[in-house]
Simulated scan of single mutants.
Amino acid sequence: MSARTFSDQAISVQDSSDDNQMVISFRLLLGLYAIIPLCLLLQLFDGWFWNGVLQQNLPSSPEQFLLFQVLFGTPHIVASSILLASNAEYLKVYKSKIMFMTAAIVMIFGVGSLFIPYKVLYLIAAAWTVYHVLKQQIGVGRGLYRLPDWAFYLLLWLSVTAGIFVYIGIFLKNSLDVQQLEWIKLVAGGLCVAMIGSALLCQRYATTAIGRWFLWSNVLLVLSSFYLFMQQYYFLAILVPRLVHDATAYVFYVVHDYNKHHRQPQNFIYRYAARCHLPIFIVLPIASFLLAFVLQSYGDSAVNSVTELFFGVEIRKAITVGLLGYLALMHYYTESFTWKHGSPYRRFIAFSK
């Protein structure tokens, strides 16, 4: 979801004649940031009492745990795709944009991979990932801290740039020499200091307590990730922003689907769920988690077996890199406009403090 999605104009609570309409509570969204002190306490306890056992046994990134990907990485991307693809009216509205972006992804990451260095493509994907994650979180709180444009974008770009350097330092650390890694740490640290300064400058625009809490929670999201990166707790450094981001997205998806389908199911998924007497709240999470598990666990081997049987060709990671990579990039793109004020999605979203 993009920052423009949650501008001052878009964040106002919508009136509804339906007394059963769900609303998104900003206090609930703020509560998701509790993962920050929890991860910091884990790191401190590991150093004080557990002799670094946690650090030694955690992988260098959450993506090395299939369970992590099934729980936090892939499902919300799959859920976003299901939400878009299962509603014909949404596909009709965004068809041309989807076709354009599909062609762009094929050209850049498909054809382009033949002559563009892998690290360049990786950096593009990494920068886009960090931008997507932080723009969503900073954008969600924009209507609460009501920053002017210059202040909002100052905070956003300092956060995103610092996050990109942390991301590079974690995922490319094995291909960097000592001096390069030190420079990355130095630049990321400087950007974090600048981010703190910009937050101190901007917080005067936040006239409510919850607005200030949201502002500093987003600052702490980046600062905690940088601190855990410096302490070499790479798993926790990535877990913090990923969990907050994914959980926030699911809140929006579930509220959207409840408000859209609870009176009369509008697509085949919810019509079938109604026949099975499944609560609307669990339909999209269950569908996306199950599909993510199947694709992550069995997708590559299934595709490889079929291509070997019929064509005598071995294709590795067609699902985990090809399909899921495409869905991830498409997710970053579509979420930048599907939740904007006036979009079909937004007719089913309302907010409360």
Results as ranks from 00 to 15, higher is better:
148 P>N: 06
352 S>G: 10
85 A>C: 13
213 W>C: 14
192 C>I: 03
294 V>C: 08
311 F>Y: 09
242 R>D: 11
271 R>V: 14
322 G>K: 01
182 E>Y: 05
229 F>M: 04
351 F>H: 07
254 V>Q: 03
112 G>C: 02
48 W>G: 00
154 L>T: 15
156 L>C: 10
250 Y>V: 10
17 S>A: 11
328 A>V: 12
203 Q>I: 07
218 N>L: 02
264 Q>H: 15
171 F>S: 04
287 A>N: 05
342 G>M: 00
298 Y>F: 13
167 Y>H: 09
291 L>S: 11
310 F>R: 05
326 Y>W: 15
153 Y>H: 14
30 L>W: 12
75 P>F: 09
321 V>D: 11
247 A>H: 06
314 E>D: 04
350 A>Y: 01
193 V>S: 09
127 A>H: 00
101 M>I: 08
216 W>C: 12
306 V>W: 12
21 Q>A: 14
239 L>M: 11
37 P>L: 10
148 P>H: 06
220 L>S: 13
41 L>F: 11
160 V>Q: 02
228 L>E: 02
89 E>F: 10
181 L>E: 06
52 G>K: 11
336 S>M: 15
64 Q>W: 12
106 V>M: 04
113 S>H: 03
93 V>C: 03
131 Y>V: 02
217 S>L: 13
18 D>I: 06
60 S>L: 13
155 L>S: 11
22 M>D: 00
7 S>I: 06
289 F>P: 05
127 A>E: 01
326 Y>K: 09
216 W>Y: 14
219 V>F: 13
107 M>A: 15
174 N>T: 11
79 A>S: 10
54 L>D: 09
101 M>A: 08
47 G>C: 06
298 Y>K: 11
307 T>N: 03
190 G>K: 01
205 Y>S: 10
137 Q>I: 08
64 Q>V: 05
243 L>K: 01
249 A>G: 09
256 H>L: 12
134 L>F: 14
97 K>N: 13
102 T>H: 10
266 Q>A: 12
335 E>R: 07
197 G>R: 00
135 K>M: 13
242 R>Y: 13
67 L>D: 04
162 A>F: 01
108 I>Y: 07
352 S>D: 06
306 V>P: 04
261 H>E: 08
217 S>T: 11
263 R>I: 11
189 G>H: 03
130 V>G: 05
91 L>G: 03
348 F>P: 04
336 S>G: 14
68 F>Y: 15
81 S>H: 05
34 A>T: 11
140 V>S: 00
98 I>T: 08
19 D>Y: 06
320 T>N: 14
53 V>I: 05
298 Y>T: 07
98 I>S: 07
43 Q>M: 15
207 T>Y: 00
186 L>D: 04
192 C>F: 01
7 S>E: 07
88 A>F: 12
167 Y>I: 02
210 I>M: 12
326 Y>F: 15
324 L>A: 06
70 V>T: 10
9 Q>N: 12
201 L>F: 15
18 D>F: 02
185 K>C: 01
59 P>E: 02
149 D>K: 11
188 A>W: 01
351 F>L: 02
12 S>I: 09
64 Q>E: 13
115 F>T: 06
78 V>P: 07
99 M>D: 00
351 F>A: 02
108 I>E: 04
66 L>A: 13
278 L>H: 08
237 A>C: 03
142 R>Q: 15
24 I>Q: 00
332 Y>K: 05
265 P>Q: 07
